[in-house]
Simulated scan of single mutants.
Amino acid sequence: MAAAADNGDATPNVSAPATPGTPGAPLFSSGPRVDSLSYERKSMPRCNRCLPLDSWAAAASPACFHDLPRPDVSLTRKLGAEFVGTFILIFGATAAPIVNQKYNGAETLIGNAACAGLAVMIVILSTGHISGAHLNPSVTISFAALRHFPWIQVPAYIAAQVSASICASFALKGIYHPFLSGGVTVPSVSITQAFFLEFVISFNLMFVVTAVATDTRAVGELAGLAVGATVMLNILIAGPLTGGSMNPVRTLGPAVAAGNYKKIWIYLVAPTMGGIVGSAVYTSVKLTDENGETVMPRTPRQARSFRR
């Protein structure tokens, strides 16, 4: 944040620290906003409108709240896409086991897994270019923890996902009443087994999601197919034991609609922990960036989610 001094003579330009604050500047400007899908700190002209965050550290270039790239999609549209996408996912993934209960196993385990996997696939293909199609608080938190997504947008994304899950669950309750209990994920094994099973399948999911969402060398155009197949595989493995949630809102919405909160903490904690570890492991395995250069542990990385 350097201001070039020009007084009309031959005096060379000198650099000086910016003055904290500018009188008369609006508190909330209509300037740049964060693009949650391609979050990257770029070299931009400084705004001189905010306090230097590290002035006490005598840094050469104090940070600025407004030093963010201009987005190509507004946050409101991203949240709208995230709400609709999560609604479709929860409706499809929860309806299958409800139908299975109502018609005495007509869907079977393969049908339940296919419904969830297909729902994930079609939502990623249809809304991935708008919101990134997280559809899952564990995915959002994992991306943020690994610096692929701005923390400032995490609460809004989670609010959209939770509200969509609850809306979808009450819609299912109205349509399939009184068979909603079939869509609630409740473990049929011990707490320890259920926790580690949800942890492992969430690890698997987030490892694949991080690969196809943040690495251009992975199959970008087939991201929806890869993630959907992973969801289907995980449900085939864990469906009879825990329901194969992998997603806190997959459990939370039906639990609220059915009033069944049995061992719900497992489905809130285990997927988030497994997701963070899965994302971290892929980030560690990915030793070089797209240009073949070594990626430093704290270097901000470009996050593409499911955009290409």
Score class of each variant (00 low, 15 high):
D54S: 14
S55D: 14
S55C: 08
S55L: 13
W56P: 02
W56Q: 10
A57Y: 09
A59M: 11
A59D: 11
A60Q: 13
S61W: 12
C64N: 04
C64M: 08
C64G: 00
C64H: 08
C64P: 03
F65N: 08
F65Y: 07
H66F: 11
H66N: 11
H66S: 06
H66W: 07
D67C: 03
L68N: 08
P69M: 10
R70S: 12
R70E: 14
R70V: 05
R70L: 10
P71N: 15
D72R: 15
V73C: 11
S74M: 05
S74L: 08
R77L: 05
L79S: 02
L79Q: 12
A81I: 04
A81E: 09
E82T: 08
F83H: 02
F83D: 01
F83R: 00
V84T: 12
G85Q: 04
G85L: 07
T86M: 08
T86L: 11
F87D: 06
I88A: 01
I88T: 04
L89N: 05
L89G: 01
L89T: 00
I90L: 14
F91L: 14
F91T: 04
G92Q: 04
T94N: 05
T94D: 02
A96Y: 03
A96M: 05
P97C: 09
I98S: 09
I98E: 08
I98Q: 09
I98G: 07
I98R: 07
I98M: 12
I98F: 11
V99I: 15
N100K: 07
N100Q: 07
N100D: 15
Q101H: 09
Q101I: 01
K102G: 10
K102F: 12
K102L: 13
K102D: 07
K102H: 12
Y103N: 08
Y103H: 12
Y103G: 02
G105W: 01
G105H: 02
A106N: 08
A106V: 13
E107I: 15
E107T: 13
T108A: 13
L109G: 04
I110F: 11
I110E: 09
G111M: 08
G111C: 06
G111H: 06
A113V: 02
A114G: 04
C115D: 03
A116R: 01
A116K: 00
L118E: 03
A119F: 11
A119K: 07
V120F: 08
V120A: 01
I122H: 01
I122N: 01
I122M: 13
I124H: 12
I124Q: 10
I124G: 10
L125V: 10
L125R: 13
L125F: 15
T127V: 13
G128I: 01
G128Y: 02
H129Y: 04
I130V: 15
I130A: 07
I130R: 06
I130F: 04
S131G: 05
S131I: 04
S131N: 07
S131C: 06
G132I: 05
A133N: 05
A133Y: 07
H134F: 12
L135Q: 06
N136E: 06
P137Y: 02
T140K: 13
T140W: 10
T140N: 14
T140Y: 09
I141T: 14
S142G: 15
S142C: 15
F143M: 15
A144Y: 11
A145C: 14
A145P: 05
L146H: 12
L146R: 12
L146Q: 15
L146M: 13
R147N: 15
H148T: 03
F149N: 03
F149E: 01
F149I: 09
F149H: 11
